[in-house]
Simulated scan of single mutants.
Amino acid sequence: METKFIELAKKRRSIYALGRKVDFSQDELVDLITSVIKQAPSPFNNQTTRAMILFGNSHEKLWDIVAAALRQVVKDDDAFAKTQAKINGFKAAYGTVLFFTETQTVKDFEQNFPLYADNFQDWSEQAQGNAQYAVWTALAENDLGANLQHYNPLIDDAVREAFDVPTSWRLRAEMDFGSIEAPAGDKDYLDDSERFRVFK
């Protein structure tokens, strides 16, 4: 039995020590990320996932937006200093993928397939998970680290204004990526008996 996918899955980890020592061109990375998202499954093939790929000043601008938004929430200077250090770590990465859901498509499918209308919101989130995991794993396959953040909806309005986001796109996650400057720590697993049941 082939197990290459399992080895890739093990390689995909949350890497927080990221840098900019990336040998691939931005065009190569764009091609990789967009190709992977296109191949990720979605319900009814409705392709509700959208993405923006940020490099350079745009990447840094995103994390400045995050820091500014968090500063409005975290009033204590010492606490914010820790928050700022964390954000600076994301900013030190090479780029960021912003994942969105195209909400008008979700609404269209709710109207066109009323029997399944209650499911399309959930299914769009499943499509997000498929796309995010696929991109993360493809980056890991190419020895690039990444981690997934969720500062939405706190930053939604500022991101919409800064990057001319269509009104029907709803921000779901932010994935910063770059060279791996330090490996992930050990990962613990629940006992199989708690997670799986097999009937034969």
Rank of each mutant, 00 (worst) to 15 (best):
R12L: 04
D186I: 01
G56W: 05
I87G: 06
F100Y: 15
A184P: 10
Y16R: 14
A184V: 03
K86R: 13
F177P: 14
D157Q: 09
D23C: 09
P114R: 00
N57K: 11
D78Q: 10
A40N: 03
H150D: 02
V198S: 04
S35Q: 08
D156V: 04
Q132V: 14
Y16P: 04
A93E: 03
L171Y: 10
L171D: 03
Q84I: 00
D122V: 02
T3R: 12
L8E: 04
Y189H: 15
I155F: 07
L70P: 04
K200T: 12
L18W: 07
D191T: 10
D77M: 04
W136Y: 14
F44Y: 13
W123Q: 09
A162C: 12
D118P: 07
G19L: 00
Q149N: 04
A17Y: 14
L190Y: 15
F177K: 05
N46W: 11
H59Y: 09
V22I: 07
R170T: 08
P166T: 03
F5E: 05
D64R: 07
F113A: 08
R12Q: 04
D23A: 14
Q84S: 13
T137A: 14
D191G: 11
T96A: 03
T137V: 08
S124M: 06
A127D: 10
Y16E: 01
R197F: 11
A117R: 15
R172P: 01
V73F: 04
Q111S: 14
K10R: 08
I15Q: 01
A81M: 05
E161W: 02
T34L: 05
V74P: 07
A51D: 07
Q39N: 13
L29F: 15
I65M: 05
I37Y: 09
